[in-house]
Design a binder for these strands. Structure first.
Length: 154
DNA sequence: GCCAACGTTGGC
DNA sequence: GCCAACGTTGGC
């Protein structure tokens, strides 16, 4: 079992959007590191945190699972799409995505501010200054520690 | 291959 | 809205 964290701006796509859809594709990732993780590493059944970025209440808000492993991100081929990449070629796809399934909302938002107070999480790219990776791995230890915070008072 | 300019991310 | 950090682009 592997664990991940996905960032999204809630004004673009929030945990409630995913709850409504239940299963959706995670398109629009245009970063090679994040692409590689989706294309090469994620396995069906892996679990992931849903993180709200760039908003008033940044933090982890829910849990989802990988419903379908990496496949070409078709939005890269669509000139009308926000994430269109004119250099991408359907015969040699450059960008990949996975499908994610809504599992549950957390009982409360575990904020970035709170995560930063735990020295055990200092290794996470998430809490490091200037980090811009929108998808990142989470270790089992980090996963358990973070989930353990859910039932504590913030 | 270097590096300055530029665009984007994302916390605050 | 500001701005730091980072990735990408393009001139040389």
């Amino acid at each position: 079992m592997q664990y991940w964290l996905f960032k999204s701006e809630p004004s673009e796509y929030s945990i409630d959007d995913l709850r409504r859809e239940q299963v959706d594709h995670w398109d629009g990732v245009r970063n090679h590191q994040a692409r590689n993780m989706m294309r090469d590493q994620m396995k069906q059944g892996d679990l992931a945190f849903f993180y709200h970025s760039n908003c008033a209440d940044t933090g982890i808000v829910g849990i989802m699972s990988i419903a379908r492993e990496g496949y070409p991100d078709h939005t890269a081929f669509d000139p009308n799409d926000k994430h269109y990449d004119p250099k991408s070629d359907p015969d040699r796809p450059c960008w990949y995505m996975v499908d994610v399934r809504f599992e549950r909302r957390l009982k409360r938002t575990i904020t970035l501010r709170e995560l930063k107070t735990h020295p055990e999480l200092a290794d996470m790219a998430l809490v490091r200054k200037g980090n811009r990776l929108s998808i990142m791995p989470v270790t089992a230890q980090q996963w358990d520690l973070i989930l353990g915070l859910e039932s504590t008072k913030s």
